[in-house]
Design a protein around this nucleic acid. Structure first.
Lengths: 225, 225
DNA sequence: TGAAAATTGTCACAGATTGTAACATCAATC
DNA sequence: GATTGATGTTACAATCTGTGACAATTTTCA
């Protein structure tokens, strides 16, 4: 029902049956938000899944529950869900809340400090400016990155400490269903490393996690006012 | 009743009758959380047990009490319990609170704004930084660990004094349903020891518990701010 | 448009990491 | 102290990753 409704509304929906399905979808598709029913098959608990997702990302999550249980609601929100909707609900209401969550989420840091709207990312002295698509080294010189290199660095630097699979990087930096061998990412990472971990800055900012993918391990220093 | 319920929920439960049973279980099993009834047999006081556990660890504890007594509740929480549930309770509620406590407990300081809020782990002069995935020796030199070695050390160092079975380490450092002989862990531990217990630091930080698994015996010094 | 330049994809090989297994040690038990 | 079983260690094989060379593709610009 939800699937049909949201597809009619123009969304692209990945409907899955259980926790494993969710993990797969998160890996495979470029997911913007998760709607999660508390009562799942497969013996997995929806609350646990919320926590699991939260440990590695700030993916927006809306919990749907079979009943309006105060404890469930509170625990769910404490667990990190962004909203909680009890059945029965109106489809229109779900849509409204979804918009609300997405808005809050994307509206993340409008960051109007000093009358400026910078949302640059800083790490270990580096400065990454998504708007201008520029990378500036600690000593102030600009490092030229190609489009692909920049996209990968941007995605990863936004989430330090989070491990990205090659597939996921593929999805996030290119369109949804891009087909190419994963090793393309390896090559890009290699070129990227050569540029940002060059002689002067021997720190390893991108580490590889064997069998999984890559992590950005820079020291993000947000909100430089 | 609780045992059966939680086992149905997929938890592994060690049910014991008294304080001594609890101590044994804490030693023997890899305990994640303690549910403690205030009214115990064996003449031991539940409150005392809370304090006893608290003096040596930050093990999460939920107290169950036969009555909803404000004094009991306050004293219990002051003693260091993480939550307090009065009878009669719904099993679902206990589960929810348990989730909540576990989450709070595992919760990494969510992304520490202002670049502050390191959650590095220190032990015996060593410094383990999960975000940067770096291990720094007491004398300041960095020790290069592989992904697998780092994961094992991280899991164990987070819970000094806790015994991890090989299976559990397997689960915690790789996916859930990973299939490989347990001896893989032995090999990894061996390599890890060679790196962190090398000539300069003869202290044995990882001890083996025959028939069970391994314990991290470093002296954790938390949260140097 | 067409050539030059830049970027990306592909591949091969080197190197690193991990799984496996054999054997050496060690601990517990009788 | 001999036996039995568990753990430590190591070598080697299997797998995964890093990187350079070059081809294919896209972009730039005359």
């Amino acid at each position: 029902m939800l699937t049909r409704y949201f597809e009619n509304e123009g969304y692209q929906v990945s409907a899955v049956a259980d926790g494993q399905g969710m993990r797969d979808a998160l890996q495979r598709d470029a997911i913007d938000i998760v709607l999660l029913d508390l009562i799942l098959g497969g013996g997995e608990d929806g609350l646990m899944l919320v926590r699991e997702v939260r440990t590695s990302s700030d993916m927006p999550i809306i919990m749907l529950s079979g009943r309006d249980d105060v404890v469930d609601r509170i625990v769910g929100l404490e667990m990190g869900a962004d909203d909680y909707i009890a059945k029965p609900f109106h489809l229109r209401e779900v849509l409204a809340r979804l918009h609300s969550v997405l808005r809050r989420h994307h509206a993340q840091p409008p960051q109007a400090i000093d009358g400026e709207g910078e949302d640059v990312i800083r790490f270990n002295g580096w400065l990454l400016n998504p708007r201008e698509r520029r990378l500036v080294a600690p000593e102030g010189t600009e490092v030229a990155l190609t489009t692909g290199e920049f996209d990968i660095l941007l995605v990863m630097a936004k989430h330090p400490g989070r491990v990205f699979s090659r597939d996921r990087l593929m999805n996030l930096t290119r369109g949804r269903h891009y087909e190419a061998p994963d090793r393309v990412i390896d090559a890009q990472i290699s070129r990227l490393r050569k540029k940002i971990e060059a002689g002067k800055h021997p720190a390893s900012l991108i580490k590889s996690v064997r069998g999984v993918g890559y992590v950005f391990t820079g020291q993000a220093s947000e909100r430089a006012s």
